[in-house]
């Protein structure tokens, strides 16, 4: 979570980044407990996310 906020430039959960491209929110359940941590960017589903993977993942959306 901290990595997502840092890499997108969002100040806090629910806030939008200064460039207007990202908003980070916490959701209750994405139905993938076996592949924690899952994140969803638009309609794309990404599993087993670690802080180290975050910069690479976000690169595709900048």
């Amino acid at each position: 979570m901290a990595a997502l906020l840092r890499e997108t430039g969002c100040k806090e959960l629910g806030a939008t980044s200064p460039d207007g491209r990202f908003t980070v929110a916490e959701v209750e359940c994405l139905g993938a407990c076996g592949f924690a941590t899952p994140i969803m960017i638009n309609d794309d589903f990404i599993e087993s996310v670690t802080p180290e993977r975050v910069p690479g993942i976000l690169q595709g959306y900048k």
């Binding site: 359940c29 139905g31 993938a32 407990c33 076996g34 592949f35």
Partner: peptide, 8 residues
């Protein structure tokens, strides 16, 4: 609508 926490 599989939503039960823990089920996938």
């Amino acid at each position: 609508d599989e939503s039960e926490p823990g089920t996938f």
